[in-house]
């Protein structure tokens, strides 16, 4: 087994872990955290795909690598949005 495959399998396991957490955790903040675990798994699967595509003197296929980079930033923005919403909801609590 190559290390690309190994990390791909790890990504698959992380997808399972993150998805489970997103579905069973009730604390919204922990749900967001699990969304990030899940995202890490997805990116790792993508990373395995990129590594498998090594060639032309590159250690990995640069196209999926660039896509992962973009995806990481988008995932961060999504996390920030979700966190802001959770905090806003918590402060709405007091006023009632």
């Amino acid at each position: 087994m190559t290390s690309a495959t190994l990390f791909g399998l790890a990504g698959a396991a992380l997808v399972g872990i993150g998805l489970f957490g997103m579905l069973v955790r009730t604390d919204p903040l922990l749900r967001i955290l699990c969304f990030n675990l899940l995202g890490g798994g997805v990116f790792l699967v993508f990373g395995a795909v990129a590594r498998r595509g090594a060639g032309a003197g590159f250690g990995g296929d640069p196209v999926p690598q660039a896509i992962i980079l973009t995806g990481l930033v988008v995932a961060f923005a999504a996390t920030a949005l979700a966190v802001a919403l959770v905090l806003r909801l918590a402060s709405a609590e007091d006023k009632r």
Partner: peptide, 20 residues
């Protein structure tokens, strides 16, 4: 899902398609 995904990772075509 994780198991299916793992199996699929093992089944990806060889040699891998690439835009390198």
């Amino acid at each position: 899902l994780a198991a299916a995904l793992g199996a699929v990772v093992l089944l990806l075509p060889n040699p891998a398609p690439s835009l390198a």
